[in-house]
């Protein structure tokens, strides 16, 4: 799992280069505070939760597969696999990286109903994300969820979330 990803000496600001890009895999999360762009691709029924502290530009992105860690007999603890445990971990890591939990705002993407075979997973992921964010007192400022379309997101410095759908439609949340 990625945590605060080290920027080494290659920060964007001091060299005028394009910002560093940090990929977040499925069931994974990452936190940055150096202006890097966080990306995650191929969101189907999974849900992406993007959190930003707009004052410090500390940002985190979670790509969770399943709604809840409860009742799962999985043998490897991997908090980012689940919306609830992943969100808790993400908030903790943001706080460690300099974000104020009270200032966090959320953007929510994904949770599509990709297949009839597994139709319930996407909406349940979205519902769980809304519940957990409400419990944590984090407002959802924008969302692009549901439908039957895959999405790819880029979480940019400043907090904008660029969402590209499989049909080529792009929007910024």
């Amino acid at each position: 799992m990625s945590h605060l990803t080290p920027s080494g000496d290659r920060t964007a600001s001091n060299r005028g280069e394009p910002p560093r890009r940090v990929k977040v895999g499925v069931g994974d999360l990452a936190v940055v505070n150096d202006g890097a762009t966080l990306t995650t691709s191929g969101l189907g029924s999974c849900v992406a939760v993007a959190l930003v502290d707009p004052v410090t530009d500390t940002r985190g992105l979670l790509h969770a597969m399943l709604p809840s860690a409860d009742g799962n007999a999985s043998h490897t603890p991997r908090p980012a696999k689940y919306v609830d445990s992943g969100l808790g971990t993400l908030v903790d890591e943001l706080a460690s990286a300099g974000a104020s939990p009270a200032r966090l705002e959320a953007r929510l993407v994904g949770g599509a109903e990709m297949l009839d075979l597994t139709a319930a997973v996407g909406p349940r992921n979205v519902d769980r994300a809304r519940e957990c964010l409400e419990d944590a007192g984090i407002p959802i400022v924008a969302s692009d969820v549901g439908d039957a379309v895959g999405r790819t997101v880029r979480f940019l410095s400043g907090g904008d979330l660029a969402v590209r759908a499989a049909d080529g439609f792009e929007r910024t949340l």
């Binding site: 499925v26 691709s41 191929g42 969101l43 189907g44 029924s45 999974c46 597969m65 399943l66 599509a112 990709m114 297949l115 075979l117 597994t118 997973v121 996407g122 039957a148 379309v149 895959g150 999405r151 790819t152 499989a166």
Partner: peptide, 13 residues
């Protein structure tokens, strides 16, 4: 659809 988005619900399940 996007290939990875298509298989993600299977993986989730």
């Amino acid at each position: 659809d996007i290939g990875s988005a298509t298989v993600s619900p299977l993986v989730a399940s």
